[in-house]
Design a protein around this nucleic acid. Structure first.
Lengths: 107, 107
DNA sequence: TTTACATATCGAGATTTATCGATTAGTATA
DNA sequence: TATACTAATCGATAAATCTCGATATGTAAA
């Protein structure tokens, strides 16, 4: 079981907005339903959502949201992919299951 | 799945000492092995450890450790039982498994 | 090659958490 | 009941986190 720094991970998880973001990214279609002509902007081929859309949904500043996403990426909860001007973020489901397994067996 | 306030829970988990305490309480015999004549002070019938012993092990002040244990109890990670002058704390294994299940299925 | 736009980073003030020593509250014993 | 001891609470300071606006960086289009 690999869990390098549980404290950092839990710090990232101890914020309402960041938890919301994980939830939104779990079901992007439900939370980011846009007109069809905008879908190509919002959703890349693997379901990632761009920072701008997440910012709008979160109701916080762009800098804060970008910072949050970077934190989440650093502990492996999400991964990102840049396409042109946009950076798309999506959940790292494997990592999330690792976290669950860590708590179940090692906490 | 019952998880009233995940943010509070994760806040409690985002501290090295509190994580250590959970680990110590998981295997009390390994971490609190005392001379036989002191066992009755250290261990109550269900494996709880008293605040004094945890304080000594943690290397923080008594007030801090008591505060930490109270936090952990409030989110259900541990439970306590008072016997005379001592309050014995032990893990709430059911709750910990609930947390794992929450992350696995709902995060 | 300017310009425009999306995201990332920086610096700072407000809020929250960590941690202590001192004190208070319970409990048992002399 | 006076004393001693364990744990909980209180008040305060230091450290960390939250969050913003401003600025910088990267990319595409004019």
């Amino acid at each position: 079981m690999y869990m390098k720094n549980p404290v950092e991970l839990f710090k990232v998880l101890s914020n309402e907005t960041r938890l919301d973001m994980l939830k939104w990214l779990k079901h992007p279609m439900e939370h980011f339903d846009q007109p069809a002509e905008l879908l190509s902007k919002s959703l890349n081929e693997r379901g990632g959502i761009c920072v701008g859309d997440i910012t709008e949904k979160a109701g916080l500043s762009q800098s804060t949201v970008s910072h949050y996403l970077t934190m989440m990426q650093k502990v492996g909860l999400v991964e990102s992919e840049r396409h042109g001007k946009w950076t798309y973020y999506r959940r790292n489901e494997e990592r999330i299951q690792e976290v669950a397994a860590f708590i179940e067996k090692e906490l």
